[in-house]
Design a protein around this nucleic acid. Structure first.
Lengths: 173, 173
DNA sequence: CAAATTTCAGCGCAACTGATATCA
DNA sequence: CTGATATCAGTTACGCTGAAATTT
């Protein structure tokens, strides 16, 4: 039996990544990069499980929540699907899929883009707007599962990961 | 058209997470937690895409690579499936699946656990050992896609994420 | 007997490929 | 015409649930 975080019911009595790092040093060499990479993988898994659990009350996944937030931020509450894909860095077919499900849930509508006959616009409904606000309040109340980090830690992690993203070509800045 | 990182072909001219943080501050309030959470999600996606691309030469996914590394670290090159699941924090059914595919690829074998008739052992084959070593050399040569981080940055990120993992109940230490 | 280990069938989500329709 | 936008069908990977078989 496991919990929704993909973890055996009883936590390990030691840090598995630290342990892997020790063995890695003995066998392969420097373990610092591997430890960071593995940590990112594991924390992503933990956070996603927490977020999806919190969002279950609104019947949306974290990926769909991100779409709602993006639309909420736009001036008119609507955006071309292309822009959604660019900003959220998701595949066009995934955008199509997310949008279809959000439409089915009554949280957004879609209509042709008057400015470009090829494209479509996704637009928040009143219900969608309520859901973004309520879901966001819940996630913020849970501090995005990051209460273990103080302000300095948050800034540091953000800055370091920003450098990784930039080096990977995510954006030019 | 997108690249395997799920990103539009041309990178954005600004940091989408930083931009989201600004809008978040205006609409919702403190954005520090959201920025860290979103960064972790995005970096995980980037790293995984890089790793999977590097491992494609060996026809394994990163998840399966992790199984091979774990077995390589064990004294006999074999471990009960249960231990594999605990250490890698993956669901029992996912272990079954990974193991089946690694067996099919000739990288491990499985046999009943002599010490516990209920369980099974996964054991590295000679080919599996070669693959772990070669794949590891490739990933280390690529510095796990983390060359943007210096040693202080790596230590900081690891320590901060470790606190998050611990707070989430991943291990007691 | 109850508990542990693993498998199996089936579902959901998301990324990806390749092909296609439509429009700039 | 080309390139861009988006959809659709189909594949794969992986996590999860619920049920079952086997053994402790």
């Amino acid at each position: 039996m496991t919990d929704p975080v993909g973890r055996a019911t009883s936590p390990l009595g030691f840090d598995p990544i630290e342990r892997a790092g020790e063995l890695w040093s003995e066998r392969f060499g420097r373990a610092d990069a591997m430890r960071v990479a593995t940590s990112v993988m594991r924390v992503q898994q933990l956070l996603l499980a927490r977020f999806d659990a919190a969002l279950k009350a609104y019947d949306i996944t974290f990926a769909r929540y991100e779409v709602l937030v993006l639309l909420h931020f736009s001036r008119r509450g609507s955006l071309p699907l292309k822009v959604v894909g660019e900003r959220l860095q998701v595949h066009p077919t995934s955008v199509t899929n997310s949008v279809a499900r959000l439409v089915a849930a009554g949280l957004i509508t879609r209509r042709p883009n008057p400015a470009d006959g090829r494209g479509a616009l996704a637009e928040l409904t009143a219900k969608g707007r309520r859901v973004v606000r309520d879901a966001t309040a819940d996630l913020m109340a849970a501090d995005f599962a990051l209460s273990a980090l103080d302000e300095a830690g948050r800034s540091a992690v953000f800055a370091q990961l920003r450098a990784v993203r930039q080096a990977a070509g995510d954006f030019t800045g």
